[in-house]
Write a protein that binds this DNA or RNA. Structure first.
Lengths: 151, 151
DNA sequence: ACAAGAGACCGAACAACCTTCGGCCTCATT
DNA sequence: AATGAGGCCGAAGGTTGTTCGGTCTCTTGT
């Protein structure tokens, strides 16, 4: 994972449809060498997959909310129960007052309420606190640079 | 935006590297028709871009945190100031106690502290509350289904 | 009812690209 | 100094992207 790999990741985050020839030229490598580098990045899991970034509003998701979930039991093995709700796009175990933080996208506030109801139905859950997003300033992938020298 | 478009989006979210022939076969269309559909999905902004999903830990980001930001002024036009910090991967204006919610990835808690310091330096910011993520259960794209009928 | 037009699909053809391979170079090891 | 591994380049062939003409099905207007 050197600076060329980071440059490749940066390029592929911006546009994964570009050719290996263009990719190689962007980082100063031949087509074959760029291909080999990217193949290894995939193989080692640095690139988990290449995916289409879909606009949530095009899917009818106009409402975004973060919900903290309180519980009376250990939530470390409840991933399937949260994943079963398609409106939940992220779920994390957190330190602090609540046990779990989930990110929810719905078409309406009524539908958000329904998701909260279904979260309450999960075993051990005894409370939720929803925070509605009024406007998203930006959402972007993690930068391959800026993580480098922690000191 | 019919059920075929949604099936195409589902396919492309899972794997954007598959051929148009495979894509067409998955949704019951010819190669040319699948290509034309996807072209229009891009043109209309439903597909914002196709991108490599990079593992944050491969970039050295071992720490994930959500930070609520309190402020003494209107934060609706501060997107550039938050975007200037590469460790911030999301920023939202929220309803509720705080003004802004940001998602932060860093290599260490020391680096997280440094990000908090730089957030404090933004004009109008007078407080932050960080919530550390202990374990991510999952992070996934929004489902093309499940947004449709609210009932 | 019927003609006209738009939109979408199919199948095929050509250009562009992916993928692999042999050969070369560099560097670390012995 | 010899050896082996790893990475790069350039080229070749098989695969894919992209375009285009023709056909079909709806919708629109008279």
């Amino acid at each position: 994972m050197d600076h060329i790999d980071r440059a490749l990741l940066e390029q592929l985050q911006q546009d994964a449809t570009q050719s290996y020839a263009a990719l190689g030229q962007a980082v100063g490598l031949s087509t074959g060498a760029a291909h080999e580098r990217v193949r290894k990045l995939r193989e080692h899991g640095a690139i988990r997959r290449t995916t289409a970034d879909v606009d949530p509003s095009a899917l009818g998701y106009g409402v975004l909310a973060y919900v903290t979930v309180d519980s009376t039991r250990w939530m470390g093995d409840t991933a399937p129960e949260f994943a079963a709700l398609p409106e939940i796009v992220e779920a994390h175990i957190i330190a602090g007052n609540a046990s779990v933080l989930v990110k929810v996208r719905t078409a309406s506030t009524e539908q958000l309420q329904d998701v909260l109801r279904r979260i309450h139905a999960i075993d051990g859950v005894n409370g939720t606190r929803a925070t509605i997003v009024l406007e998203s300033l930006f959402e972007r992938p993690a930068s391959p640079y800026g993580a480098g020298a922690a000191g």
